[in-house]
Amino acid sequence: MDTEGAGLMLTLLSFVVGFSLLVFIHEWGHYSVARLFGVRIDSFAIGFGRELFGWTDKRGVRWKFCMLPLGGYVKFHGDQSAASNPGAVEGLSEEERKDCFHFKPLWQRALIVFAGPAINLIAAAVVFAGFYLTYGITVAEPVVATVQPDSAAEQAGMLPGDRILAVSGETVERFTDIGSLVRLYPGRETTVLVERDRTPIALTVTFGTRYLEDRFGNRYPYGILGVASGPATRVTLGPIEALAEGGRQTVSMIQSIFITLGQMVMGIRSIEEVGGPLRIVTMTGDAAAQGLENWIWFLALISINLGVVNLLPIPVLDGGHLMFYAIEALKGSPLSQRAQELGYMAGLALMLLFMVVVTLNDLQSMAL
């Protein structure tokens, strides 16, 4: 592994500690809501594979750290595996069924599953809020002060004084919103709604393309409009305003992730842009090398990605469980155990294939 940007030990330590923390937060969401609904819990694991060390608490929960620090799980009573697919639950007594996850009401099971991704998103919002509470925010009106020559904005007929109202149908409230949206559409033609002399005007804009380049020479395209704002104002926030701003930032990033995923599905973006475990390890080390605050901010970004990815409707992920529960709600009964097992096998195969692809991306990029 190339660790020119950060030392090998710092890279590995920052990743293991950071990712384990995010996994703990995710699994704590499942654990705490399960406890709230009286579910018996057999184990709480950070990592997969053979147990390195652990302990059993007075409730009989085995808390353990395992060899591969690439995830974690909470194993409920009655689970066949760490993926929470039901095992031999038919042989349980009536008393045992009372604290078994798989016999809880549908809405309780759904909340327990949803709690993991949700707490990842909430944790990220809280981290952002902490930064905004400490440093405040810089706010500028979404009004064009200058238009760069030969830019996408100039070619579309944008003028100084135009107030940008929306980009590709997404409402703009601040000047920073413009960049967050534009960067998602490199080289793409879309509509930018502006207000000029109190009159709304829809401009067709083909955004320019620039590239971010990492230290392995990988280039990641982003869109560019070519406008600048007027003077910005530094605003100090109180706790409530900071939390609201943290939530706003989190929602904005969730939208960006879904837009990017949609572009990959439609073939607009290449899957080669997706970083796998090796790239994430390296980026975590780079963030840590830049200081504690950069590392914490980066972990918040990863926490959002972890929460969103886990909500995808793929069996073995939380979203796959929620998909099964939605089907159960519609048909009035659960899918057969065989159907669920086949779903988990297909989901596992899909995730393994995805991991192979992104890992090959990593190896190829790091070999350049």
Rank of each mutant, 00 (worst) to 15 (best):
A125V: 02
L8I: 14
L368T: 11
E272H: 07
D57L: 04
M264C: 10
A118W: 07
F65N: 00
Y135D: 06
I164R: 02
P200A: 10
L311T: 06
A202W: 09
T284L: 02
A326R: 11
A349V: 13
V182S: 07
F76E: 07
H30G: 09
R269D: 04
P160C: 13
G38T: 06
G319M: 05
A156N: 05
I178G: 09
S84E: 01
A145T: 07
I240L: 14
T359W: 00
T56D: 00
A88E: 15
L317C: 04
N218A: 12
I178S: 09
S270V: 00
W28I: 14
A329P: 01
L311P: 02
H102I: 14
D286R: 12
N305E: 13
V23D: 08
I41F: 09
S303W: 10
G38E: 08
V113S: 04
M351R: 02
N120G: 11
A346P: 03
L106R: 14
V356D: 07
L21W: 09
F324C: 12
A329G: 10
F114R: 09
L159R: 10
D214E: 06
L111R: 07
G291F: 05
P117V: 03
G161Q: 14
F324A: 15
Y211K: 00
W295Y: 01
G49R: 10
Y31V: 13
I240Y: 14
L165A: 10
S81W: 06
G307H: 08
Y211N: 00
T11Y: 15
G285T: 03
G130L: 05
D197W: 15
F48D: 02
R248S: 08
V126T: 02
Y344G: 01
L12P: 03
L165G: 04
D99W: 14
V89A: 12
R188K: 10
D57I: 04
F65V: 08
V16M: 01
T206K: 11
R59F: 09
V281L: 13
V33N: 01
V126R: 07
T199Q: 06
L133G: 13
T138P: 01
T134D: 00
G91A: 04
L278T: 03
